[in-house]
Amino acid sequence: MITPTHYMLLSSALFIIGVAGVMMRRNIIVIFMSIELILNAVNINLVAYSSQLQNAVGQVFALFVIAVAAAEAAVGLGIILAFYRNKETVNIDEMNLMKW
C-alpha cells in the first residue's frame, strides 16, 4: 500500500539531491537545473497530498509553482547569458564581483 509517507520520502530524497547539486556543483547552469529538481520535489508533495485529501487545491498550487519555475528559468538564463557575454564563464566561483 502506497501512503503519502512514501511520496513524502520520495520528494524529500529528490529535494536533497537538488540541494546537494546546488551546494556541490560550480557550473551555474547545473545549479539552475538542481533548483528545478527542488521545485519538482515540492510539486510531488503537493500533488500527493491533493490526491490523498481528494482536494484539487494542491494541484492548483503545483500549477503556480510551474509558472514561477518558468519565470525563474527565463530570467535566470537571461542573467547567465548576459554574464557569460561579459566574463566568458559560467563558474560561480568566478562570479565574485559586486559590480562591474
Binding site: R26, I28, I29, L81, V90, N91
Partner: peptide, 20 residues
C-alpha cells in the same frame, strides 16, 4: 530553453576547472 543556453554558452574550458 536550458538546452539553448547550454549550446549558446559554447565553453572553451570546462566550467569546473577553476577550483576554489
Amino acid at each position: 530553453l536550458y538546452l539553448f543556453v547550454v549550446m549558446l554558452v559554447n565553453l572553451k574550458r570546462p566550467p569546473e576547472a577553476h577550483h576554489d
